[in-house]
Amino acid sequence: MLRAVLERLRQKRRTVPFPAEPPSLPDRLRGLPVIDAAKCPADCRHNPPCAAACPMGAILPGLGTAGTPAIDLGKCLFCTDCTAVCPSGALTFGRDHRLAVRRREHLLFRGEGLKLAEALEKRTRRLFGRSLKLRQVSAGGCNACEADLNVLTTIVFDLGRFGIEFVASPRHADGIMVTGPVTENMRVALLKCYEATPEPRIVIASGSCAVSGGPFAGMPESHDGVDALVPVDLYIPGCPPHPITALDGMLRLLGRI
């Protein structure tokens, strides 16, 4: 017992001060992409190599500000295929962890003004603002998204201090948090879980797979994301989203950021 106490003292308090203070993130974090219109060559824009290099078709030529490419953050896997082929260094990944939005179309990032998630409507916010119980459903997730949601419950992020908790049954839940592209074999289970969650309920799609199908988009066993089956209230992009990105999205949804 004494040893446990001594070890506890030695290992110190480890809960991050987020959101009161900015999070500490790796310097190489691949967060919100940065498209420098001044550097993006005009002769490159009609057929940009970044769009050709993207295995997900997430880069849409000409749809960004001033004719630069736009990036569908819902499809983006935050790999480096596009930045590696950009001849001028106009396209890079920034360190901004804030990526979560309320509507799928808001993930079409044109280079500026990402419309970050707004808080829930008055009634649901009154209900869930101080206590949100979520049932997590993995529907084809690769266990990276799951692991980085699990980590929110550790002492580092201490999700409980925000009144948010993952619960064991949809009957106890105010909403579901789905990871994975929704495989055909999980379709029925997901729908049953959704139906078993009492109304009003919210749905959070966490990770590129849950948002758009991710690397499995268009494949025969995939349903290309949660909103093909149930309406989604919060989209959190990333492959997988950094825990801080997911936490930031959830706190925005509750009007806490």
Partner: peptide, 16 residues
């Protein structure tokens, strides 16, 4: 893509 299409991502997510 850059030669391997989505294969690197399918490998990365075979078991994430």
């Amino acid at each position: 893509g850059r030669g391997f299409g989505r294969v690197p991502h399918l490998m990365a997510t075979a078991a994430g």
